[in-house]
C-alpha cells in the first residue's frame, strides 16, 4: 500500500515537472516516465493487460511520435519562450487545490464506496471484448479509418499550395 501511494505521489510530481519544463524534449521524456508510473500502478490494481498496453503504446509509441515531431523543429524553437510566472505559480495553486480537495473529495468518495451498486459478474477479459463489447471494436475500426483519412487529407497538397510552389520553382529557374 505504501508502494502504491508512493507511485501516485511520484507521478504527480513527474506530471508537474512535465508541465513546468522549459524544454520540449525534456517535457516529452518526463511524460513517458509518467506513463511508466501509471502502468506500474495498473499492475498493482491487478490489471496486467491494460498495464502492458499503457507501457507499450503510451510510454513507447506516443513518446516516439512526440520526439520525432520535436526533431522537425529547428533548435531555437525547442525552447518554450512564454511567461514563466504562471508556471512558477502552478505548484502553489496545486498545493491550495490539494488542501481543498483533501477536505472535499476524500469524504465524497468515502461515502461513495459504501453506496450499493449493481451486482456484477466478473467475466473473463476475452469474453467481454469479443462478446459483450463487439460494437466497440467496430467503433475502433471507425476511429482508425477517421484518423488515417484525416492525416491523409491534412498532408495532401491543396491547389493554393501547389500554385505557390510552382511559382517558386519557376521563379528559381529564371
Amino acid at each position: 500500500m505504501t508502494y502504491h501511494l508512493a507511485l501516485f505521489i511520484l507521478i504527480i510530481i513527474l506530471a508537474l515537472a512535465a508541465v513546468m519544463a522549459k524544454n520540449m524534449l525534456f517535457s516529452a521524456l518526463i511524460l513517458s516516465l509518467v506513463s511508466v508510473g501509471v502502468s506500474l500502478i495498473l499492475f498493482t490494481f491487478a490489471s496486467p493487460w491494460a498495464a502492458v498496453f499503457e507501457l507499450s503504446v503510451c510510454a513507447g509509441l506516443i513518446t516516439a511520435l512526440f520526439i520525432s515531431v520535436i526533431n522537425l523543429m529547428p533548435k531555437e524553437k525547442k525552447l518554450l519562450n512564454e511567461s514563466r510566472l504562471k508556471f512558477t505559480l502552478l505548484p502553489v495553486v496545486l498545493l491550495i487545490m490539494a488542501v481543498i480537495s483533501w477536505i472535499y473529495i476524500v469524504p465524497f468518495f468515502e461515502y461513495l464506496s459504501k453506496h450499493p451498486h449493481l451486482s456484477i459478474h466478473n467475466y473473463p477479459l476475452g469474453q467481454i471484448i469479443w462478446k459483450d463489447r463487439v460494437f466497440d471494436l467496430i467503433g475502433q475500426i471507425c476511429i482508425f479509418a477517421a484518423g488515417v483519412f484525416a492525416i491523409k487529407s491534412l498532408f495532401a497538397r491543396s491547389i493554393n499550395e501547389q500554385k505557390s510552389h510552382k511559382s517558386q520553382v519557376t521563379g528559381h529557374k529564371f
Binding site: L42, F45, A46, S47, W49, A50, F53, E54, I120, N122, Y123, P124, L125, I128, I129, D132, R133, D136
Partner: peptide, 8 residues
C-alpha cells in the same frame, strides 16, 4: 476489473 481493462 475485466470490464475496466477492456475499456482501458
Amino acid at each position: 476489473v475485466n470490464l475496466a481493462q477492456a475499456i482501458a
